[in-house]
Amino acid sequence: MPADNVDLPPRRYADLQLLALRARRGDAADLKLSAKGLALLEALLAQPEAVSLSGISQLAQHHGVNPSRLTRLAHALGLEGFKALQALFREDLSDSAFYSTRAQRLLDFGETPRAEGDALADDRALWQQEMQNLSATVEALDTTQLAAAAASIQQARRIHVIGLRASFGAAHYLAYYLDYLRDSVHLVSGHAGVSVEQALRLGEEDLVIGIAFRPESRMSIDYCRLAVEQGASLLALTNHSSSQLATLSESTLLAPAEGAFFFNPMSSLFMLVELLLSRVAREMGHDAVLALRQREALISRLHVE
């Protein structure tokens, strides 16, 4: 980050990053932070999503401090209180500069995994983090909710699957194989000129499967919100229980995606999709086998490769 001064109070999440870096270097005389205050600020900056989506008591408990410490930190930064501090993190949550901000944080705070003398250490560390995400997904999985999600997929008249930007790959994967198993599966794709208004065609017998990781696509959220308003059911696949998508649905499957990765870790999301597909196929039993054989016969007859 540049070494330019930042006026107090900070107006953006990036300003907070710069203030923390200046304080760590000892060239922020205008910032009256104790060593513990600086450590708390750096800890918050290392987990922006948690700060954005947690209440002050929950966040204080997570960091082992009294909630008043968070209020005092906000005051030291020239802000009115914790809500004003949290607002800076929430703005970053939907900021168009999410990836560059995250990359800068990883580099400046040294959060990218490093090990001297081992050229593969960084890659192994990333693999270990993804394994932790996979384990966390399975441990947090509500099997009753997974079964209910599979049942809703079987019973729905029509299914619309939407996941844009980074989530599009998982949405395509899910829609592609659901189409093997049942009729009336539609992949919503902005690349095909699909607009939010298509959700107007949905009703009480229909299901939308929404997939959104941070930063959540506004079109995805708007599409799911409109579908719910039309009476359709919504199954949300996301990485945080307090995401915008999750707030629209009572049926949410979580795929934790933590780690020092410059982009969105997606392994847990694809595994969640695989678990959902497997459950649907298993519940369908011989009907799933018949559907697969019919699709394979068509592919063979049309010489599709």
Rank of each mutant, 00 (worst) to 15 (best):
D179Q: 05
A76L: 08
E250W: 02
V280L: 06
H191I: 02
M131G: 00
T252Q: 03
I221D: 13
L77Y: 07
E80R: 05
R12F: 11
I159N: 09
D30H: 04
R295T: 10
Y13I: 05
R124A: 09
D122T: 09
R124G: 03
D287V: 11
L70W: 01
R72N: 10
A121M: 09
L290K: 09
S184P: 02
S94A: 15
L45F: 15
D27P: 04
G117T: 15
A74N: 07
L33H: 04
A74T: 01
R22Q: 15
P48R: 14
G193V: 00
L45A: 12
I221N: 12
S52D: 11
L45W: 10
A74L: 05
P215S: 05
A166M: 07
L200M: 08
A3M: 14
Q17N: 13
Q58F: 03
F213Q: 00
H75S: 00
L269Y: 05
I299N: 04
A74W: 04
S251M: 15
T112C: 06
S217W: 02
S300H: 07
L45K: 12
R225Q: 14
S251D: 13
Q128V: 03
R124N: 08
H286Y: 06
E204K: 10
R157N: 13
D7L: 06
F89T: 04
H186F: 14
L93C: 02
G78N: 05
A156F: 13
S94F: 09
G203H: 05
L292Q: 09
E205V: 01
L248H: 00
L45G: 15
P48Y: 06
G81F: 00
L40T: 01
A125S: 14
A199V: 05
E111W: 02
A192V: 01
N5I: 04
D30P: 00
D222G: 11
L53N: 09
L207D: 10
P265V: 09
R114Y: 12
L79R: 04
F270W: 10
I211K: 13
A212Q: 14
G81H: 05
A170Y: 06
T143N: 05
M284F: 08
Q154Y: 02
A192I: 03
E296T: 08
L45Y: 10
F82A: 09
I221W: 14
D118I: 05
D15L: 12
A212D: 04
G26F: 04
Q86G: 03
A3V: 10
L16N: 10
S135P: 00
N133G: 06
V208F: 09
A147M: 01
L31P: 11
